[in-house]
Write a protein that binds this DNA or RNA. Structure first.
Length: 493
DNA sequence: ACGGGCTTGTA
DNA sequence: ACAAGCCCG
């Protein structure tokens, strides 16, 4: 006998009672605009499940991405609470995804399993394997992106390699549909299924040290961030987004990564805002950069292993252990580069422009492989996403899809002066320079002795002298890149 | 197949 | 202007 349902559910009960397991997989931790969930509810009974697979959640894996684990666990807790408040629950299991899923499917006599697609190669492989081994149908839904990866092609049916034509094509074909509402009630779960719940693991259990400085997870927190963005920064976005010293960006990257918000909900919120924000279109363009990264990774799954530009293969990157350590710890002597490094470790977040400055410095000034920077960012970023992080690093290194030309090397002093004019960002993250006047905040090595003295800064003691000289480092990279690319060109037919 | 055009810049 | 080059219609 089925549990009692609200009036709404009675209506559904009249139809076929299809039993759908809705498998939440960490990129769709929300109730609103959730296509598998909505499809499940429309068809009958729903069993929401999350599986803590050791592939991600074994302690030795979890510590490799502690910030994201913390954010995900918080978001899963919020999801569980929201499902409980609506008469259902999030059944949490531990172990190998396929085994636990198959077991649950048998225990509940499920008719099918529904989930949101992951576009990375290993996600696709996992889904193929699950579909072929599961006794019941396995349906994956789109929704991680605005358009399904692979759906936007050039006139000749090829993948785009340059953003702007992709953006134009996107605007031509994208049709915005209203996001699905958040379900008010869900069918309840039988006691024998509720009894299978193994709960959400705690951080300690996974060997992860809690970090109080991270943004909060959960669907509600995400909506509050979206609201904050729409109330201010969205209107000033065109210029404000580049400012390191202001709250000029959306701060929605982690919400989109974990699917606390779908990109469609965010796009819709911009479109339907009472006062259309002045920076709405510019922000939507940024959302399409997110699309571009997912589409690119879909077309070229080995981007995670190799440079997009084949002529960068075999590039003579340097080891430079001392340079690497300085870059990681924020001790390069370039204030804005160091601020970015420290913000990453402390907050698990870095302003987009600061990411570019940091990436340019690591790859060009230090000549260190972009993949090392990419991996370091993946380790600490709350919003760390394979597709986007990889695109960003390859773009910065000059070897990526639509990359900046290799000879365009960011000058960290100029970037700092332009986008953090008063040095507010630097002062926050490099407090040993806090008393330096803004004239010298981005180039303390040029400050007069008396100024340094007044600011209480002794270079090489309180704060390092630059570990490389900008002009020399720039020249070294250009010479190396030029020689390497010329050689590669000579090798190719 | 020709040519306009190309996220985030520097000197 | 530029230390190039090539995407895409």
């Amino acid at each position: 006998m089925r549990a009692k349902h609200s009036a709404n559910d009675q209506i559904v009960q009249v139809g076929a009672r299809v039993r759908s397991i809705v498998w939440f997989r960490g990129k769709d931790l929300r109730l609103a605009d959730h296509q598998p969930l909505a499809a499940g509810i429309a068809a009958g009974e729903v069993l929401p499940v999350f599986i803590f697979d050791p592939y991600f959640f074994a302690p030795e894996r979890a510590v490799q991405m502690g910030h994201r684990i913390q954010f995900l666990l918080e978001s899963a807790q919020a999801l569980k609470a929201a499902l409980q408040a609506r008469g259902s629950d999030l059944i949490c299991l531990r172990g190998a995804s396929f085994d636990r899923l198959a077991e649950l499917s048998r225990a509940w006599s499920a008719d099918r399993v529904l989930a949101t697609r992951w576009s990375e190669r290993f996600g696709r492989k996992r889904d193929d394997s699950i579909a072929s081994r599961l006794q019941v149908p396995f349906h994956v839904f789109e929704g991680e992106t605005l358009m399904p990866p692979g759906d936007i092609l050039t006139a000749s049916g090829q993948a785009f390699r340059v953003f702007t034509p992709f953006w134009r094509a996107f605007q031509r074909v994208f049709e915005l549909k209203a996001p699905l509402p958040r379900p008010e009630r869900l069918p309840s779960l039988p006691p024998e299924i509720l009894a299978l719940d193994e709960g959400i693991p705690g951080l300690e259990e996974l060997g992860v040290v809690a970090n109080e400085r991270l943004i909060r997870g959960g669907e509600q927190a995400a909506w509050s961030r979206l609201d904050t963005f729409l109330r201010g920064p969205a209107d000033r976005y065109v210029k404000g987004r580049d400012r390191l010293d202001q709250e000029g960006t959306s701060r929605l990257s982690a919400d989109l990564k974990f699917g606390l918000l779908s990109p469609r909900q965010v796009w819709w919120a911009i479109e339907t805002a009472e006062a259309r924000p002045g920076g709405g279109a510019a922000f939507q363009r940024q959302l399409v950069w997110r699309e571009f990264s997912h589409h690119s990774l879909w077309h070229w799954p080995d981007l995670l292993e190799r440079p997009f530009r084949a002529d960068f293969e075999g590039f003579p990157w340097l080891e430079d252990p001392a340079g690497w350590q300085a870059w990681v710890q924020g001790q390069t002597g370039y204030p804005v580069v160091d601020a970015a490094a420290r913000q990453l470790l402390v907050e698990g977040f870095v302003h987009n422009r600061a990411r570019m400055i940091a990436a340019s410095f690591l790859t060009k000034h230090l000549g260190i492989h972009y993949q090392r920077g990419e991996a370091h960012y993946m380790r600490y970023l709350v919003d760390g996403d394979w597709a986007q992080n990889n695109l960003g690093w390859q773009w910065s290194a000059g070897c990526g899809c639509d990359a900046q030309p290799y000879f365009r090397v960011f000058n960290p002093t100029l970037q700092g002066q332009r986008f953090d004019p008063a040095g507010t960002y630097v002062r926050q993250w490099v407090p040993e320079l806090a008393r330096l006047p803004k004239r010298w905040i981005h180039e303390p090595w040029n400050a007069p002795e008396s100024v340094l003295l007044d600011a209480g800064v002794t270079l090489a003691k309180d704060y390092p002298k630059p570990i490389v000289e900008h002009r020399a480092a720039r020249a070294r990279f250009l010479a190396t890149a030029k020689a390497h690319l010329a050689q590669r060109k000579g090798l190719s037919p």
